[in-house]
């Protein structure tokens, strides 16, 4: 197998793919660029460790994944996000008899239409920003990246029940917020 030992060639061939991978997972331009740079640097330093039994891109993505998880964990540590799971923000959505405080409306727009609707995109962005950080990150990874549930649990070091609770709360908040922005008339 041919060993291409030129960093410029690596960057030209793989940096957009790696950046795309990181950007979608972190939803943060600067952080995504930083982890990609870290990954390339780590890979370059360890290029002799590449055995060629996977494609170079797969190998680089493997390194990048570790960098992304490190980044997310660091964020969790610095922001002390543990209390998000113990509070019960369910109450704003339901009355004490467990009925809806504010009943959901029917959304008449189709997903194909909504996904090309700039208003919907900016409202979604705004509503996502209102979610607590970890809820947002977990929701992004699951629903926007389409990441496997087990991978998300491992990344955030949470149980699958925690994951279900976070997803449930994110969905309740997003539905409410998007309807306030006029979707679902």
């Amino acid at each position: 197998m041919q060993q291409e030992e030129d960093i410029s060639a690596w960057v030209a061939a793989y940096s957009d793919d790696l950046y795309r991978f990181a950007r979608i997972r972190l939803q943060d331009d600067d952080a995504a660029q930083d982890v990609v740079q870290d990954a390339f640097f780590a890979a370059w330093k360890a290029k002799d460790g590449f055995k060629g039994n996977s494609s170079r891109k797969t190998w680089l993505i493997g390194i990048l994944k570790h960098k992304i998880i490190d980044h997310i964990r660091k964020q969790i540590r610095t922001r002390k996000l543990t209390d998000e799971l113990t509070q019960d923000p369910n109450s704003p959505w339901f009355n004490s008899d467990n009925s809806w405080q504010d009943a959901a409306r029917v959304w008449r727009d189709s997903p194909e239409h909504l996904c090309h609707d700039d208003n919907f995109r900016s409202s979604l962005q705004e509503c996502m920003q209102k979610l607590p950080l970890r809820q947002r990150q977990v929701f992004m990874l699951r629903e926007i990246v389409g990441e496997d549930a087990q991978v998300v649990c491992n990344t955030f070091d949470i149980t699958s029940t925690n994951l279900h609770v976070l997803m449930h709360r994110a969905r309740l908040s997003l539905r409410h917020c998007l309807e306030k922005h006029g979707f679902g008339a």
């Binding site: 360890a46 460790g49 055995k51 797969t58 493997g62 570790h66």
Partner: peptide
Amino acid sequence: DLLKSNPKPSEE
């Protein structure tokens, strides 16, 4: 150490 364990699938 991390990089020695390459992922399996071979695309090349």
